[in-house]
Nucleic acid binder design. Sequence first.
DNA 1: TATATTTAAGAATAAGGAGTCTTAATTCTT
DNA 2: AAGAATTAAGACTCCTTATTCTTAAATATA
Lengths: 143, 143
Amino acid sequence: MLSSACKESIRAMIYITHAGGERKIIPVKEVAEKLDTSFYFLAKNVQKLVKAGLLFSYKGPKGGVKLAKKPEEIMLIDIVEAIDGLEFFETCLLGFKDCSDEHPCAIHHKWSDKRKAIYKMFSETSLKEIVGDMEKLCINVVF
Amino acid sequence: MLSSACKESIRAMIYITHAGGERKIIPVKEVAEKLDTSFYFLAKNVQKLVKAGLLFSYKGPKGGVKLAKKPEEIMLIDIVEAIDGLEFFETCLLGFKDCSDEHPCAIHHKWSDKRKAIYKMFSETSLKEIVGDMEKLCINVVF
DNA sequence: TATATTTAAGAATAAGGAGTCTTAATTCTT
DNA sequence: AAGAATTAAGACTCCTTATTCTTAAATATA
Ligand code: FES
Ligand code: FES
């Protein structure tokens, strides 16, 4: 459902929130190391997050990225939209051209509910909540 | 979420149910034409449905496929499993190695509910129900 | 039995996403 | 001012999936 780029971006945002919140600047290189992933791949996705206004970036020594908003103001759906787009929430599960209550496919009325629930979950879950939960449950943010 | 092969397979099964139920043999060529899709691509996916025991196939003139079970006994999840597999329902939304209540990621507890709901929907929705609904609502099965 | 029709199987090709690398631009530090 | 560190941008390769095609096997029908 989410692309690998999107999954990794969410994990990166979680790490950035955990490690620096909206204050500290964190080098992308550090994020890649902690997430045990490719710097190249992560850096490319981080660029999209910057363009989407979720991160500020700073070049040069001591450069890196930091949250562009408060952790409670960045929702999962913002990250998904920046990386994968919202196509998933707008298109038919069976691949028909239109997807609306007016032009439903065979399972539109059933699927629509589930999809809305997922959208709601992504829209209401903030980075602050996730990181808070993880710290509370003693889950390693990077696994 | 579903591959294009899976979407098309579901549509094909809906058409086969609508046009022939469990009795009549329908050529794959006819299905491809009605669904306005590639015969080659559809035929390959139909083979998987045959191997999965959802369809019987018959070679030669007057050959084709028909449902291997009653329409009320074929669930959406069976088609999804045959074409895409159940990986979606077993793997972490953020791409972590394990996905279980014992080893949850940052959003496992939230996501798990949604995923179960989708699985339930796919498990409880039969071809008979879909085709019945469509006929009741006067929706064209092939769009 | 010969022919036409249809599925079966797998090879071949195209397209798209994933992942890597190179070069440029910026900025801190000395 | 020079050099090092870091992001920005885009080209490039690789891999998986999607899609098409070719050949083989089976079977109904004349
Ligand atoms: S029309 Fe198919 S899910 Fe909406
Ligand atoms: S561990 Fe991430 S969704 Fe289950």
